[in-house]
């Protein structure tokens, strides 16, 4: 089922992360964790997968002596998300 849907995005947490990032310029890891209600470990793994796919950029830096991870969607990520939504709509159209 859903063989045309991008497997990177067709996962609840990864889709949630990309959906959050699509409307903003950049977001901190803690923001993504809070909004997706996920654990730090699981979120780190999914963010790494999105990064490996080239869908997001991850910058690690220090803010007030604390480590800070900033995530930002890439143009490739935006295209993939748009394609994913288009395919979802096609599936919904078929099922009607």
């Amino acid at each position: 089922m859903f063989k045309d849907l991008d497997p990177i995005l067709h996962s609840q947490l990864r889709l949630a992360v990309v959906s959050l990032l699509i409307g903003v310029k950049e977001a901190e890891f803690t923001f993504l964790k809070e909004k997706t209600n996920s654990t730090a470990g699981n979120l780190s793994v999914q963010i790494q997968k999105l990064k490996d796919a080239g869908y997001i950029d991850v910058v690690k830096q220090f803010k007030n002596n604390y480590p800070q991870t900033i995530c930002k969607i890439t143009p490739q990520g935006i295209s993939a998300f748009e394609e994913y939504v288009k395919n979802l709509q096609a599936y919904l159209g078929q099922s009607k």
Partner: peptide, 25 residues
Amino acid sequence: MNDDNFSVQDSFRVIQSMIDKAKED
């Protein structure tokens, strides 16, 4: 919910709810 039975409707729900959550800030 795990990713094996993650449906098209679930996808839309996730997208909608996350876009709404981003607006809160």
